[in-house]
Design a protein around this nucleic acid. Structure first.
Lengths: 156, 156
DNA sequence: AATAGTTGCTACCCACAACTATCAACTATC
DNA sequence: GATAGTTGATAGTTGTGGGTAGCAACTATT
């Protein structure tokens, strides 16, 4: 139990610089930066604004690469898929939040690419949020949708 | 009421040949065929195996085109998004169905591109199914997910 | 039975999404 | 304070996904 916890922490410890991360992944540094610019990853940033990547980050990037290179899903496609993660349920945000939240009302970009003024997510760090952390692995979004009690309204 | 019904029927009446459909959409015939081959649309087929398109089909194609040309989502991306439609809830299929159903266990292709032997969907026509019909319009998939009572398990 | 339109191929084209290289200014480490 | 590594830019490269054209065989319409 304690051991698992330790492993979990080390998996999320941002130990790799951008150059070692790029080397480990077999891609260039600009590519890694562009994934961030597109909102696919949120690396940790030091006080001096330098990027650091954890093991979990690397695995996330590998899923993204698999989607792009093997599944032939474009970057905008991945963003659209991420936007379907039901964040509003994961963070249990209020009806009022949903009205004003850009993420809730978008189907083009993941929620963590929005600023969330005046919502539950305002003071949260998206990198540490379960929406970002849990549903990043290659096939987990559909699995999330399966663990759902549906209540389809107006379905004729 | 009757009037709406009539409109609804005419909207789904497969009145257009492939050449007129292509002309109305401003695309070539091979393109229209390729969308079908990819599983994005299911046109009606005559006894002589010729394709006929309804008004609803044309609108569907327009959404697909918008996704490809404006949103820059690749065809495989669109397929992956369609695969996230919770068909199992729309058609209310059994636990046993879910075990053996290729669609339930895929996140690459929409459910209607599978044959569904020995499931609730086996004897259904996918073109007439609500999964195909209702959640084809550009932004409706996320809306569907919003009309849901969630029951997230194992969410730490 | 003749004309027009369709079928499923295969072969071809090209815009551009994904990626890389290079830069001066800045940060980290010793 | 000097070396190595990083930052955000811009400019350049390239593979290929999305689309088209052309074909013989088939179907529809007159």
């Amino acid at each position: 139990m304690v051991k698992v916890n330790t492993m979990e922490i080390s998996r999320e410890e941002p130990n790799y610089s951008i150059s070692t991360a790029a080397k480990l992944l077999g891609i260039s540094i600009p590519t890694l930066r562009s994934y961030e610019k597109e909102g696919l990853i949120i690396p940790h940033k030091t006080d001096g604004n330098q990027r650091h990547y954890s093991q979990a980050d690397l695995e996330r990037v590998e899923c993204i690469r698999q989607a792009i290179n093997e599944k032939k899903i474009s970057i905008n496609g991945i963003k659209a898929i991420y936007s379907l993660i039901p964040c509003w349920e994961v963070v249990q945000c209020s009806d009022k939040d949903r009205e004003i939240c850009g993420a809730y009302n978008s189907d083009e970009k993941p929620c963590w690419t929005f600023t969330h003024p005046n919502t539950t997510c305002a003071e949260r760090s998206c990198r540490d949020c379960n929406v970002y952390k849990n549903y990043s692995n290659c096939g987990t979004i559909k699995d999330l949708l399966k663990n759902i009690s549906f209540n389809i309204s107006g379905n004729n």
